[in-house]
């Protein structure tokens, strides 16, 4: 599923990386605990989180995650957005809370999210 489609499903706004909306996503991870995310290794993953500090970008960078959705209408500050642009990441923000956002993506076919 392309990031473009994820943006539509979540009725999300683009905060960074509008030139990278064709990135292909095959799995997703929703968490507010960075070490939880760091335990999750999947290729072409999407990260959904309610956290908006710069370590979200660092964590994504280490994981080779290139697309992040901030849930519950969270919008990070400019510094974080600049950092994401530097790393060529896509940032989206959606009004939906975490549970709904994950549910919407899951029921639209983005079902890979576990170990293994």
């Amino acid at each position: 599923m392309k990031v473009e489609r994820i943006k539509e499903i979540l009725d999300a706004e683009i905060l960074a990386g509008k030139e990278h909306l064709d990135i292909e996503i095959t799995s997703a991870c929703g968490s507010d605990l960075m070490s939880d995310v760091l335990a999750f290794v999947k290729d072409q993953a999407l990260l959904l989180t309610g956290l908006v500090n710069s370590q979200v970008i660092r964590t994504a960078e280490m994981m080779d995650i290139r697309a992040i959705v901030f849930v519950r209408g969270k919008v990070p500050d400019k510094e974080l957005i600049d950092l994401a642009n530097q790393k060529e990441m896509v940032l989206l923000t959606t009004k939906h809370p975490m549970y709904i956002a994950c549910g919407l993506l899951y029921s639209s076919g983005l079902t890979c999210g576990g170990e293994g």
Binding site: D32, L33, M34, S35, D36, A39, T49, L51, N53, V56
Partner: peptide, 15 residues
């Protein structure tokens, strides 16, 4: 509150 302190860091390093 910053997303750390899950007690998963050292286990992750080991892994």
């Amino acid at each position: 509150e910053m997303g750390f302190g899950a007690g998963m860091g050292l286990p992750n390093i080991k892994k």
